[in-house]
């Protein structure tokens, strides 16, 4: 039986990654969780954190954490360093009108540590 409203807590597991101070402000960093590579971004001005897959789906490169971040009409985004494809950090949607998208994950900051739910 699957209930109607599945909360994140029920289906995902939170992982403690690294202290807040290890991540660059207004930039990205990559964390390894098991065999997975997750890109984590910190928008200092608004205090928002986002996480997504590190692999850029365009050419399957493990690179998104090294991308520039910013916003497009208020939507937080990351631009892949290789060919500047951009993705929404909220929905993972491709902002160039192409079909491929990325996975995004919830982030939580607690006791000075960054947690990610996979």
């Amino acid at each position: 039986m699957v209930s109607q409203n599945i909360s994140i807590e029920n289906t995902r597991q939170w992982y403690r990654t690294a202290p807040v101070t290890a991540f660059p402000a207004d930039g990205g960093g990559c964390v390894k969780i098991g065999e997975r590579q997750i890109a984590v971004f910190h928008f200092k001005a608004t205090g928002e954190w986002y996480a997504c897959q590190n692999m850029c789906p365009h050419k399957a490169q493990m690179i998104l954490a090294r991308g520039l971040i910013g916003d497009c009409q208020g939507e937080p985004k990351v631009a892949c360093p290789f060919h500047k494809k951009t993705f929404s950090l909220k929905t993972g949607q491709n902002l160039n009108g192409e079909e491929y998208a990325i996975e995004t994950y919830p982030v939580r900051v607690e006791d000075g540590f960054v947690y990610i739910a996979l």
């Binding site: 207004d26 928008f43 001005a45 608004t46 991308g67 520039l68 971040i69 910013g70 916003d71 497009c72 208020g74 937080p76 985004k77 631009a79 500047k84 951009t86």
Partner: peptide, 17 residues
């Protein structure tokens, strides 16, 4: 950050940064 605060808006992007 100073330049953005004085003359810009939003968070910036891969073009202006």
């Amino acid at each position: 950050d100073e330049v953005l605060a004085h003359y810009g808006k939003g968070h910036g992007c891969e073009v202006c940064k």
